[in-house]
Amino acid sequence: MLDETVAVIENRPLTGGHFLLSLRSPHQAPLVRPGQFAMLRLPGHSDVLLRRPMSIYDVKLAHPQGSGKGKGNLPEIIQLLYKIVGRGTQLMAELRPGDQTEMLAPLGHGFFEEKYLEAARQADEVLHVAGGIGIAALLMPAKSLARAGIRQRLFFGARGVQELVGTEDFVPFVGETILSTEDGSCGTPGYITRPLEAHLENHRHQRFLLLACGPWAMLEATAEMACRHGCPCLVSMENRMGCGLGVCLGCSIRVRGEGHGSYERVCTEGPVFWAKHVMWERK
C-alpha cells in the first residue's frame, strides 16, 4: 500500500452517468491484486474531506505490448470505474487529463488470497454476480481466473441498459454473460438473482464458486441462494469509509464469530468476505 500523487490520463464518460478514470501510477499498479480497492482524495474541496473508496477495475500497461516502449511488462495505469452518486463522484467526474489527485492503494484483501484459492481450484465453474456498479470489483478476478483456465460465467443486473457498463470488457474471459434489467430494457426483466437461481437449479451436479459484488439486498439474496445450494460464495462488501487504513473503524460490519469483537473492518479484514461469515442483518 502506497500513498501517491497520481496524474489523470483519461476520464472517459460512459452511459448512465458512469466514468472510467485512468490514473498513471507506476508504483501502485504492479502491486494490485484482484478485488482490492483504492482511496481517492480530491484535494482542495473542504466539503469533500474524506477519501472515497473505489474498487480497482483494472490495471494496464502504459504502452500496449509490442510497441517497444514501457518498462517491461509491469502495469503502470490504474483504472477506476465509477458512477456519479454524490458530491465526491461528481467532483471525480470533473477531473481532466493532467489533473493530479492523491490515491492510497492497493488496499484490502482481494479475491484470491491463499485462503480463497482452494475454493476456486475446486470449482467446475465460477459464477460472477454483479449488481450495478458492483461490476467494477469483478473484472480483475475474471482476468486472473481466465489465466488459470477456470470456466466462468457472468450474471450482471442493473436498473436499465444504460447501467450495464463494462460487459464488453468481460467477453474475452467469461464463457457466457447473462444480463438483467429492472426496467426490462435489456436481458431478463427483474433482478439478476432470478436467472442465477435458475442456473443453480439446472446444474445441481456442478460445483460452483460464486463471486458477488453489488447492493446489500442483492448480496444478501445471493448469499442465501449460495447457502441453499451448498455453493461457496465470496462477496465484496462496500461501506462508508473514513480512512481505508483500519484505524477509524467506521466501515465495520457485523460478522459471525470472534475477531475484533463481532465486527470486522471492510477496509482491512475485507472488502472480500465469505458470504456465510457476514451477518446479513437489514441495513
Binding site: 474531506l49 461501506n239 473514513g242 477509524c248 467506521g250 466501515c251
Partner: peptide
C-alpha cells in the same frame, strides 16, 4: 464490539462518527 453500521457520515468540512469505542 462497537456500534452497528453505518457509523460515520461526512458533513461540511467535517464528519460525524459513532464508532462506539470498539
Amino acid at each position: 464490539p462497537g456500534n452497528p453500521a453505518p457509523r460515520i457520515y461526512e458533513t461540511e468540512a467535517g464528519m460525524l462518527n459513532a464508532i462506539g469505542l470498539q
